[in-house]
Amino acid sequence: MRDYTVGGPSSITAAEDGLVDADCYKPKIDRELIKQLMMRNNGWAIAHIASWFAALGVFGWLAHLSWGSWWAVPTFGIYGVLYGSMSDSRWHETGHRTAFRTKWMNDVVYYIASFMIFREPETWRWSHARHHSDTIIVGRDAEIAFKRNVPFYKFVLELVGISAVPNEFKQWIRNSLGNFTNNQKEFQPEETFRISMWASRIYILILAGVVASCVLVRSVEPLMFIGLPSFYGHWLVVTLGITQHAGLAEDVTDHRLNTRTIYMGPLNRWIYWNMNYHVEHHIYPSVPFHSLKKLHLAIKDQLPTPYPSLYQALREVVPTLRRQANDAAYFVKRELPLSVNI
């Protein structure tokens, strides 16, 4: 049984094995090119965020009009994905502060998207920094979502955030009272706890306001727009996100071995903000979403063969997770290109 506790016994082993904040593999790339690819552009991000909010507005309006009829099922279905899944990629990119060139624009969208995806922004900012330092290093990475020795049905239930959202809500309550877990203390500096405390309080107040409005109008409809989409619209981000690292090698420092790049169509890439180029993102987190495809084209010969589609990636991930439930030693070994040094 693997012990995934952050800061637990596995973290000591990881440190002894030189896996903590280690130097990771970097492909060869022309400095001028990578400089160009790291350039930020407010225009791209504004256009994307505007299109996202426009889609939320249109489908939110249609959902409201269809409330009480069967048409509410597809309209809320789409609204929920826009809210509860698409917010993940916006949360992620603005958390890196690479979406916009202007820092405060990243931060504003980050706080909105964090609420929508149901993540307290400050704690998750630090857990994500740790995730990039020690990607799926057991005992170090606080964001290993698909652990070994876990029955597969539990991952299926996470399609609607069955434990992730309630657990996060409990943490908001604790944080709002000034209580922080050992897990948080492991990767988040104490001087930032105050930010977590206030963010949690504000998020809880917003949810309380929505519940109060439900009581006022004697309908659950307000919660269907704010709050509940974090559950019922969560399934797509799990479906996309499960392909990032699940089933691959733990405790390695080469992102080509613990991360997947998958080709996806334009709709999924709009929803996912090109995070299907996930190996590239982990190697060069300073490259914004709109340049990841160009980065992929520049270095793809030095990376394992990408998965041709989401379906093909899932065909590997699902059986692997099912097997790992009983066989923690099993993992998918990615083949590195022979032409480059390992």
């Binding site: 904040d21 280690a22 130097d23 970097k26 400089k35 790291m38 930020r40 890196h96 502060r97 690479t98 060139r101 820092k103 920094a129 990039h132 330092s133 060069y284 987190p285 300073s286």
Partner: peptide, 25 residues
């Protein structure tokens, strides 16, 4: 000063430099 990364691989924009590993500036 945060993580083990060379700022020389980072991104210069105006008067700021961004760390290539965690995007600290």
């Amino acid at each position: 000063t945060h993580g083990k990364a060379h700022l020389a691989e980072g991104f210069v924009d105006g008067t700021t430099i961004e760390c290539p590993k965690h995007n600290g500036r």
